[in-house]
Design a protein around this nucleic acid. Sequence first.
RNA 1: GCGCCCGUAGCUCAGCUGGAUAGAGCGCGAGACUUCUAAUCUUGAGGCCGCAGGUUCGAAUCCUGCCGGGCGCGCCA
Length: 595
Amino acid sequence: MYRPAVRAVPDPELKPPLLQTIFDIYAAEVNRAIDALVAAGTVPADANRKPVTLEPPRDPTHGDLSTNAAMVLAKPAKTNPRALAEALKQELAAAPHVEAVEIAGPGFLNLRLAEPAWIAELARIGEAGAHYGRSSFGEGVRANIEYVSANPTGPMHMGHCRGAVVGDALATLLEFTGHDVIREYYVNDAGGQVDVLARSAHLRYLEALGEDIGEIPEGLYPGDYLKPVGDALAREYGDELRNAPEADWLPTFRRKAVDAMLELIRTDLGKLGIHHDLFSSEYDLQRSGAVDRAEARLREMGHVYEGVLEPPKGELPDDWEPVELTLFRASEFGDDVDRPLKKSDGSWTYFGADAAYHLQKAEQADLLIDIWGADHAGTVKRIKAAVEALTGGKVPLDVLLVQMVRLFRAGEPVKMSKRSGNFVTLAEVVDEVGKDAVRFMMLSRRADAPLDFDFAKVKEQSKDNPVFYVQYAHARIQSMLRRAEAEGLAPAPPEDCAGHFDETDQALLQLAAQLPRIVRLAAEAHEPHRVAFFLESLAAAFHANYNRGNDDPALRVVRPEDAARSNARLALNRAVGQVIANGLGLMGVEPAHEM
RNA sequence: GCGCCCGUAGCUCAGCUGGAUAGAGCGCGAGACUUCUAAUCUUGAGGCCGCAGGUUCGAAUCCUGCCGGGCGCGCCA
């Protein structure tokens, strides 16, 4: 029913060459050092190296890079960490540009690198440009990420916004780390609420034919957005269906109305810069027999039986009565109770169809990610159970629960009521504050923490507003580069930068060079907010460095009287701007060039 | 009652999947504007990381049990 959007097939020719970053290079050196100890018999060959890390130490006085290798390997090597550290130190000291290796604390190995090592990273930022931070650890992994999946019964409201942005940013992050990503939207067009939509559209159809429909009855969708649907139906069918029984028009009206709603939703998502590769219809899924096949598969494996569920705990629904149902043994896969696949009337439950839908996704992916509202937390276990049963545990499913967004206007909460149709739509918010601000704010907290969204704050031009703060850093850098050009200066090639950076400059470069690590960590943890936090800290470091020029004119970046140093620092600042732009790009935010 | 999420500075939150002396912003105190965009920056005070055990070289991070808050509990979607 819904044509998938044309999916761009990644052209291997266009794939940029991946550069080894400074962390890759020295991680390899650490590995080499361990290899040497293995060869010497100090460390067993089968020792698990996975917990070995190479990170910038939190305290910069500890050096440029730090590894826990000695501590992690001490146990398998049956020695103490410091003794192992001594042996590793000898090996690491031979690595290029290593000025010093120190053993510290319980057995950390701290590496101090000579400037050329960092200048080389500066060169890589320039060389990779918009691709800096890209990696290939997801190479060969097909990741399916399903997000938004709002019911096609009306325009998007703010309740949908956060999941949409988080899902989209995570998808971009996974692409950037080499995964083959499918962005998917599950269209819930098979349930009763779509009948309600069709009836609501029918009423608007009568209205378009000139009937006085009065108040929209309780239980139907009252929104004006259905008027154009009614108009279109009236144009198409004229009087034909005016007095026809419901059965004559319901299926058609369902389809027409859902199509129209999806068009609305697509438009809304477009305003946020979100485009899915695939819209999958629950209705089509059921008609195709996919759900029957999934059930048969579970039945074959002995995971399905006919039975009666215990009454639910807590508040008992008024109409509860014990009935025999087709049940999936979810409790054997970690769920609390078994779950019905079919209703007593023989039709599929939402869960039954969803299980089949996940099987369909799993057949074409190595990793499944669902982005759900936190109010669906109660159904995570059952769908994970179903995926595990259906795929034999081969395809992992991660369900990200996205917490609520509380809207405020100048500190006052914005009241929303679904019943009265009085909700804040996504389009309104994007039109008011802009796509970039919305996206950044949605990523400025961990997904599982509630988020306050204050219109006043988001539009504020001050450092209280992280969107602005980061954008301003980028704009300032562009402004600086323009100014430098006017003064006859230009960013120096990396080889001319040596010796021109002081400690603060070095620290800024080292922070910018962390982008690839942050990207990787964020992608692995499925936590796009990490990019936002990184950008805030990088912007802060930039502003601080920049501002030194106000106290001491000799520390200004644009200084024609010292062109060599000025050009070197321009190269550094340009690289910082590149990193900010790349990070913003991952969040779907356009960098500002002037403000 | 059961399940999931959360509990870190007065407030809002980070904390690199177990690392070194727990960080940032706001707010509060003290400073820097003939600015390369002060739309910014510098600096000070402020902490039994909810509580109690456990796991180990090492715990805010993992496990168990409490306490407190949020969400959920259906043949709905």
